[in-house]
Amino acid sequence: MIVNHPSRPRVVVAPDSFKGSLGAVEVCAAVGEGVRRAFPDAEVVAVPMADGGEGTLDCFLSALGGKEMALAAVDPLGRPVQARYALSGDGRSAVVELASASGLPLVADAGPDPLGAGTEGTGMLIADAVAHGARDVLVCLGGSASTDGGAGLLRALGVRFTDAAGEDLPPGGGALARLAAIDDSGLRPEVRATRFRVACDVTNPLVGPRGAAAVFGPQKGAGPEQVRALDAALERFAGVLAEHTGVRVRDLPGAGAAGGACGGLVAMLGAEPASGAELVADTVGLPAALDGADLVITGEGRVDGQSAGGKVVSVVAALARERGVPAVALAGSLVAPLDDLHDLGLTAAFSLADGPRTLEELTGSAGPLLAGLAEQVARLRLA
């Protein structure tokens, strides 16, 4: 039975990707299909979202167009890799996703190298974007394989990091323990003239018990001794950065994102950190899309209490509440309590699991399950 609605309903679909299963664009398509089963004439507005990590580049390309640029770069271990970034239609701005050249999945075949992995490949992408005329570069952090404070990235842009003997340090965060001086005389004028913004979804400082090494190092293969070594190296890095630039990023919220790359970018390039999901929402026009909406459907692979800390679901819910629009989240995994999300404006949340299923079954059937669940949400909320 088709549900009748007194007017053509407007439904905004603004999800993050379901990692390991569907990208945000694919999630939008599946949810839109389900909504139209209930309301064939529904106006479904797809606004793929991301939080500044993996998938953000595709989100921008889908929403804003532009040109996808391919480049031969290096991966976190210095091996050749084909990476990509986005250049706007007018060539004045670019979006660089750190994970494209410096992401953890790129070292899956060789295994992680916590002390030696670097971010030089991301710097190569930025250099290419600037060479093509971009003077506003958004660097999307997340999924990094390295804890080098962004030193490799900066090295690719012309910055030297040297030891007490004046020798260049090798790649990787471990080497920063021997950092004695920074020489940025090789930083090109066009790089200095570029506005840099960094999108991230964490508020961790550079060092300490909540710092880049302590919190994210184990995810990159670092054992306890390596975590301590990396934290000490980043402490040294922060001190020399402060001496050279006058900018103190040791305790800056968010400086620990992407193995401290955020801290290095802020100190050396004057980068402006921002909540990834909020920045993406503003850039792709989500606030305007929500005006006049009857319902917004968001979601991500896992929704839990931590989702309230700046993840896509929380940002979408807050924007929806400001406009009096009910917001429903769909998730592969749903873990209570969700009180903080409800306080932010989330009306309800539902899991895709329609019965006992393995993770493989859920990820393999995510599209049809999303469509079916979205249909039921639309019938209930818009009837």
Rank of each mutant, 00 (worst) to 15 (best):
277 A>N: 08
122 T>A: 13
2 I>F: 11
263 G>D: 10
331 A>Y: 08
243 E>H: 14
316 V>K: 04
142 G>F: 07
133 G>L: 09
131 A>T: 13
229 A>L: 13
329 A>S: 11
351 S>K: 01
258 A>M: 13
121 G>I: 02
5 H>C: 14
195 R>I: 14
253 P>V: 05
371 A>F: 13
140 C>V: 10
330 L>A: 00
357 R>Q: 10
298 T>Q: 09
214 A>M: 03
339 D>N: 05
198 V>I: 11
54 E>C: 03
23 G>C: 06
60 F>K: 00
14 A>E: 09
107 V>C: 06
19 K>D: 07
80 P>Y: 08
184 D>S: 14
75 D>I: 01
213 A>S: 15
43 E>W: 08
128 D>E: 15
91 G>T: 05
325 V>T: 04
378 A>D: 06
317 A>T: 03
200 C>A: 12
86 A>H: 10
103 G>A: 04
196 F>N: 11
217 G>W: 04
310 G>L: 05
376 Q>T: 12
324 G>F: 00
203 T>I: 02
249 V>Q: 10
227 V>P: 13
311 K>P: 06
55 G>C: 02
51 D>Y: 05
115 L>R: 11
132 H>N: 10
36 R>A: 13
234 L>P: 14
82 Q>Y: 02
168 D>G: 11
122 T>Q: 02
33 E>K: 14
96 V>C: 04
28 C>T: 09
132 H>T: 09
258 A>C: 12
318 A>D: 11
288 A>I: 03
